[in-house]
Write a protein that binds this DNA or RNA. Sequence first.
DNA 1: AAGAAATTTAATCATTTGATTAAACTTTTT
DNA 2: AAAAAGTTTAATCAAATGATTAAATTTCTT
Lengths: 208, 208
Amino acid sequence: MEISQDIDSLSTEDKIRAAAAKVFVRKGYAATKTRDIAKEAGINIASLHYYYRSKEKLFGLVIGEALNKFSQGMDEVFGGDNPLHEKIKNFVNRYIDFFKINPYIPVFIMSESQNNPEKVDQLVDSQKLMPKLTKELNELIEEGIIRPISPVHFFLNIISLTAFPFIAKPLMSKKMNLSDDDYSQMLEERKELVPEMIINFLYLKKPS
Amino acid sequence: MEISQDIDSLSTEDKIRAAAAKVFVRKGYAATKTRDIAKEAGINIASLHYYYRSKEKLFGLVIGEALNKFSQGMDEVFGGDNPLHEKIKNFVNRYIDFFKINPYIPVFIMSESQNNPEKVDQLVDSQKLMPKLTKELNELIEEGIIRPISPVHFFLNIISLTAFPFIAKPLMSKKMNLSDDDYSQMLEERKELVPEMIINFLYLKKPS
DNA sequence: AAGAAATTTAATCATTTGATTAAACTTTTT
DNA sequence: AAAAAGTTTAATCAAATGATTAAATTTCTT
């Protein structure tokens, strides 16, 4: 899921891309200097341009990767045919684990899609899982199993409760005086709390 | 709540600060050029340095203001002595309205506190409303009115459900094919949905 | 109104930064 | 092994950028 390979075993091209991912994701597009990336990769700036033409092109690859990793889980979780309440649990567990390993990704994606929408928009595939999820929700609503809710709210509720604690970590841990371990512990607790809250709200009678 | 005064009626000093707030908040620290601010304010770059010494000092003022506006509502809402479920409703209503007027503030605060923690940390006053909120929650828990929950989770749940939809707007509206009006309408719906969801989860028996 | 202080401006500086060039070096092909 | 292709490097460029200066202009004080 993350950069795991020994840096020296990578080709120059891959070293650059790995370094770019690391620096762009941590600092954002504007604050990242091509020299930062070159230094992180242990290569010359010219090599960066040799392989990737420009800072912008390289950034396009990095944010594309980030968006893929980010949305991949959604398709996988909501694409299955297990009960909805299981999907909810899977989603929360999976994304909390993912964000624990990639803590800078949420702010990176959200701030870049606000500040550089032209670079991000083309990469966002307008729906794919939405039709399926919509159908699933509508069926459960008609059967009287869950309350009426639009897919947008359903989706926003889950992602909000899962991703926002990572986005707000610097502020919250400061404001609440929480150490990194405290915060990590709290996030573990949310693997139970968040699904319970959503299911509790959604289901008219508790599911199996 | 926002910049409302006629720009020409402001002193140069205030024009600069207003312009800086606008540009910094929309584009972030790194992407903002002092020339952008000067242009937005309709003044010379040298005046900017005359009044505010450096880009960094000016930024400090702007992010300080943003943090104040952001946390002011929390103190006001949770400081009162009305029932908790009313505070929840007030909070959500108030912040959705606030963010509708200041849509760039959430991403600005979150991304800057991740990317420039040294500039932000000093401005965050370690708790103030927390002791009061903690006491209130503990009392309601002991009385068997709400379920056991830590202030951190309580707080994160409310802010997540309220603020995240603004943070994710560019991505969500693209992914879900929602116009600005659609999105605004959806946010209005959340003024009811979010408090209901939180209260429904929190209260063991429905409050008055 | 004259002089002093404060403000604003155009011009300029030094550094940073994305990008290029040409040469050196390495690997692959024949 | 020689030639060609691919890769890496040091040096350099041009534009952008935060900041300063000194002069011009305006406002304030007496």
